[in-house]
Design a protein around this nucleic acid. Structure first.
Lengths: 202, 202
DNA sequence: GGGAGCATGTAACGGGTTACATGATTGG
DNA sequence: CCAATCATGTAACCCGTTACATGCTCCC
């Protein structure tokens, strides 16, 4: 029985937090002091492309929770005229928790909600020409996204980046490029079935 | 002023529903009568791969909401010994709503929460060997997912499929294959930097 | 003068999940 | 006999967003 208990929790007891908490903790894992506002900006330029772009209010709430758990600490930086900032820093316990999570969390499946794919799936409701327009629009948007990722990749300040962070941004670019390719093939495929589908003549 | 109002809502007034409601409505757009349980099964074999795999309780709640809006109708099918089923069918208004949504909804960006990417991004906390293990595990899981998609593609009953649904399942397979490729390249890339990173000898 | 960026936070709400509750039939 | 599948639903809860509130500085 005790053996069984040991087996279910082999390591230290990880606080049972959602992975987004660990995302925030990860942003702080460089051991620099950052404000909620800073975190938000940085997340928009990195996490955004493969994980999450959190709202500010959520970040603040998350920081308070992590502080309550002793995973981050807080100090207030007075700045004279300017509004004081609340700076957060990861604690040893926090570093430990995020490291354990990264190493041992179960590989839970990716959350993907692709509303364009959903709409193409329902293409029979709107016809081939409308689907074509929709996909074309999406491809254009994806091209812009790639540009954003490339910019983030190229302009990342040295102290926020490393081989892993760079590799993931390159991975994200490749994935978006693959998406453009795959949608291109999808369009070609649908076109080949055109004679069989009712569609307005151009 | 009236011109302005007309401009913000150019078409019929679409009920302001989350896209997941339209996903459920889309499942019913084939105009067959289906139970909540049926929808769940079907979603797990189609929507699951590119959009969403809803919980049963959510589907039931969604159906009640759609019924309240007059977008689906309900009837109870008595089945003697067996527990009666509640069968839902899309109404003309519902068909109209989902069609309008598919055609005119803004291309809102894909929601992607890729926790493996997040963990690789934090790879500096655990070192190259651990990242390798993590990625290898993920690639294996992705291969299984491709198998699932292929099975769904090949076994889809004729009355639930069409050229669009098939094309999206093929698209989903290609995307997962691309993910395996991209992670493979990421691993190779990280290996090339190995001399610069501290890692245990094998 | 006005808008964008900096900076923090509260309140209300909606979306979606898990756990719980119930019970029958079918197949190994 | 037990597990899986069929079938529906409630309650509690958490995650995360939007809207609101406040105020300062910098730049056009």
């Amino acid at each position: 029985m005790t053996a069984k208990q040991r087996k279910t929790r082999p390591q230290a007891v990880l606080p049972d937090l959602p992975s987004t908490s660990y995302a925030v903790l990860g942003l702080l894992s460089g051991e620099r002091e950052l404000s909620g506002y800073d975190l938000r900006k940085w997340a928009s330029n990195s996490l955004h492309f493969f994980y999450w772009s959190p709202s500010l209010s959520h970040i603040y709430a998350e920081l308070r929770r992590l502080e309550g758990l002793g995973l981050v600490s807080q100090r207030i930086e007075p700045r004279g005229e300017l509004r004081a900032r609340r700076l957060y820093r990861i604690t040893p316990a926090g570093l430990d928790a995020v490291r354990t999570w990264v190493r041992t969390a179960p590989v839970d499946s990716t959350v993907l909600k692709h509303s364009v794919a959903l709409r193409v799936w329902l293409g029979h409701l709107i016809g081939l020409d409308s689907v074509h327009d929709l996909v074309a629009e999406h491809i254009a948007a994806t091209e812009m996204l790639i540009t954003d990722i490339r910019r983030a990749h190229d302009t990342a300040p040295a102290e926020t980046t490393n081989a892993y962070a760079q590799a993931i941004l390159e991975w994200a670019q490749e994935m978006q490029a693959a998406e453009i390719d795959a949608f291109g093939r999808l369009q070609a495929k649908l076109d080949r079935t055109r004679p069989a589908l009712p569609a307005k003549a151009s």
